[in-house]
Computed example of a mutant assay.
Amino acid sequence: MGSLTPDWWDFFRAAGILRPMIVISESVWIAVKDRLSKSTAAAALALVFEKVRAGEVICPCVCLNVMVENSEAVKPYIRRSFVGRLKRPAACVCVTADDNKRP
Rank of each mutant, 00 (worst) to 15 (best):
R13Q: 09
S81W: 11
Y77L: 15
R13Y: 02
F12W: 06
I17F: 00
P103C: 09
K101A: 14
R85P: 03
W29T: 06
A43I: 00
P76S: 13
Y77R: 09
R85F: 09
P6W: 04
E50H: 10
G55M: 10
W29I: 08
P89G: 03
R102F: 13
P60C: 13
S71D: 10
R13V: 12
F82G: 06
F82M: 10
R79W: 08
A42D: 01
A15S: 11
G16L: 00
R79L: 14
M21Q: 12
I58F: 08
D10I: 00
D99C: 15
A91V: 08
I78R: 06
G55P: 07
V74N: 03
T40Y: 00
D98W: 10
A15L: 01
I78Y: 06
S27E: 15
D10F: 00
R79Y: 10
V68R: 05
A90Y: 06
S37W: 02
V52R: 07
E50A: 15
S39F: 00
A73L: 13
T5V: 12
C59R: 15
V68I: 14
V93G: 06
L4V: 05
E56G: 04
S71A: 12
A31C: 03
D10H: 05
S39T: 01
A46K: 09
S37D: 06
I78N: 04
A44P: 07
D99I: 08
K87N: 13
P60Y: 09
V83Q: 10
